[in-house]
Design a protein around this nucleic acid. Structure first.
Lengths: 188, 188
DNA sequence: ACCTGAACACCGTTCAAGT
DNA sequence: ACCTGAACACCGTTCAAGT
């Protein structure tokens, strides 16, 4: 006679985890252990299953990494509210990067052989910046200006995260100097 | 009786490879196969020995990666001749990055858990740029200006390499626009 | 002295077998 | 239907044994 916890013929077993839980655990492991530490086993263990079970929800480790990247851009998008100035946008961009450095790097500077988030996620994140740069540089230079600001901010943050500022000096002051100069540079 | 090729007691066997050859092979593999493809076995096979032999010249895979990063910065340094303008410097920087994208990324945007080249290598590479920015921005802003230019160029190239320019538009024109604006921005 | 095979503890991934 | 152990082909690294 079947008890509540035993197998009862053809009754489907309840799911022991979910894709959301897997991606969320993967994001935390990425920040704590780096990309090399993001293994199928570590993720599986974090959500309470064995590694092979992950393949029910995810096609491969690369697929999981792509989902992590997409969740990261999506979170970034919600942080970058429309209506902000270019300086606000840059500030929020940097704050996010310092909170989730590994995720930020995965999105903004992935290695050549790493999966990239779908274009639609990147477009959503750059939308509000484009509106801010249009105000400064004019509609016809909005894209160039947005790229210039994004490139600078991404490069700056990357150097900051990888300790590239070992020549000394005040990092905050260097950021403020850069924002000020960039904004002036793209203003028509 | 011993022949030429057989072991003759205590005579040391001639080295079958060298550290230079190992690092050089590793750099080529990095570009061709990515960091994940840079395995001790692939490097060993490229230089004609077995993986365990590499540990005679290299402490670990991470140590080898550090040596690769340092050789890459060193090559970059020799390319960045003193006396160049900021625009020249940026151009050469980008040309190098497009030739050795994986090495460039390893040096300029390493993940948090990757080995970094020693500071002396980075200092040597930034020296000529500091002299160029001093001419434009004045001695007291030379460092801030150099960081701003380097951050922008690194970010731009990173976006270019990772396909971040999928919103369309002319990448060369965007580069020229950025250089022009940056140079103007840091000029006193 | 340098190099190697064998071994160990890990990876990602597949698949038949369990419930 | 979901989950698992066992298996396979890989990793990095160590070490005793070969020359």
């Amino acid at each position: 006679m079947a008890t509540v916890n035993s197998y009862s013929g053809d009754m489907p077993t309840p799911d022991r985890t979910s894709l959301d839980q897997i991606v969320s655990a993967a994001r935390d492991i990425l920040e704590a252990e780096g990309l090399a530490g993001l293994t199928m086993q570590s993720v599986a263990s974090a959500v309470g299953v064995r590694a092979p079970s992950l393949y029910k929800r995810v096609q491969s480790r690369d697929d999981l990494i792509r989902l992590v990247a997409e969740a990261t851009v999506q979170e970034l998008s919600t942080r970058l509210e429309p209506g902000a100035t270019v300086a606000d946008y840059a500030s929020e961009f940097r704050a996010f990067a310092l909170e989730r450095p590994a995720g930020f790097q995965l999105v903004m500077a992935p290695g050549a052989h790493l999966p990239r988030p779908g274009v639609e996620y990147l477009l959503a994140a750059t939308e509000p910046l484009l509106r801010a740069t249009a105000l400064l540089a004019g509609e016809e230079h909005a894209l160039d200006a947005a790229r210039t600001v994004t490139a600078w901010a991404t490069g700056f943050i990357g150097m900051e995260l990888s300790g590239g500022f070992n020549l000394g000096g005040d990092v905050e002051a260097a950021w403020d100097y850069g924002v000020e100069r960039l904004v002036a540079a793209i203003s028509a």
